[in-house]
Amino acid sequence: MTAGSEARGYASSMLHRIAADISDREHVSLGDLIHRLGASGFGLALIALALPAMIPIPGPFGMVTGSCLVLIACQMLIGYHRLVLPRFLADRHVTANGVKSVIMRALPWVKRLEAMVREGRWRSLTGRSSHMLVGIPVLLLAVVLALPIPFGNIGPVASLLVIGLSLVARDGLALMLGLVLSLATFIWTGVLIFAGAQIATYLASFFV
Rank of each mutant, 00 (worst) to 15 (best):
G59H: 07
F207P: 00
A204T: 10
W188Q: 13
S12R: 13
F206M: 11
T95D: 02
W188Y: 15
R123G: 07
L133T: 05
G66K: 10
Y202F: 15
G43C: 06
L51K: 12
G66Y: 12
L133Q: 02
F61Y: 15
A142D: 03
S40H: 10
S40D: 12
H27I: 11
A90F: 07
L107K: 05
D91G: 12
M63C: 00
G164S: 04
G127P: 10
I34Y: 10
V168S: 05
H93S: 09
R92F: 14
L175F: 05
L71C: 06
E6Y: 02
I163T: 04
R118F: 05
M63E: 14
G62F: 11
F186C: 05
A39K: 13
L145E: 00
H81P: 11
V208H: 14
Y10S: 14
T189A: 14
I154C: 11
G152E: 04
L83R: 06
S205L: 04
W109T: 12
F186H: 10
L49D: 15
M63I: 14
L85I: 01
G190S: 15
R36Y: 00
K100G: 01
H131R: 12
D24Q: 14
L167A: 08
A50L: 09
F88I: 01
S205V: 02
A19I: 02
W122D: 12
P108T: 01
M76I: 03
T65P: 01
K111F: 03
I163P: 15
L69F: 06
A174Y: 11
I163A: 09
P137F: 00
G178Q: 04
P58K: 11
K111S: 08
R25K: 15
G43V: 07
P150L: 08
G38H: 08
I78L: 06
A115P: 02
G31W: 02
M63S: 15
I34M: 09
V168G: 06
G31C: 02
L71R: 14
F88K: 00
G59C: 03
I78H: 03
L51D: 11
A115I: 03
I57R: 10
I47P: 14
S159K: 02
I18R: 01
A7E: 12
R17D: 04
A142Q: 05
C68S: 07
G66V: 09
R92I: 03
R92N: 04
G172Q: 06
Q75K: 00
I72D: 09
M63T: 13
C74V: 05
A20S: 09
Y80Q: 07
L89T: 00
L141M: 01
M76N: 05
I57A: 13
L89Y: 02
I103C: 08
L165A: 09
I18L: 02
L83S: 09
M116G: 11
R17S: 05
G164C: 10
L49S: 13
L165S: 07
R82H: 08
G152I: 05
G9D: 12
I72F: 06
S29D: 07
R17G: 07
L183R: 03
V208I: 12
T65H: 15
E114K: 06
S130Q: 01
I193E: 09
R36D: 02
P156F: 08
L167E: 05
G98V: 00
L113C: 08
V144N: 12
I47S: 09
R87Y: 03
H35R: 11
E114M: 13
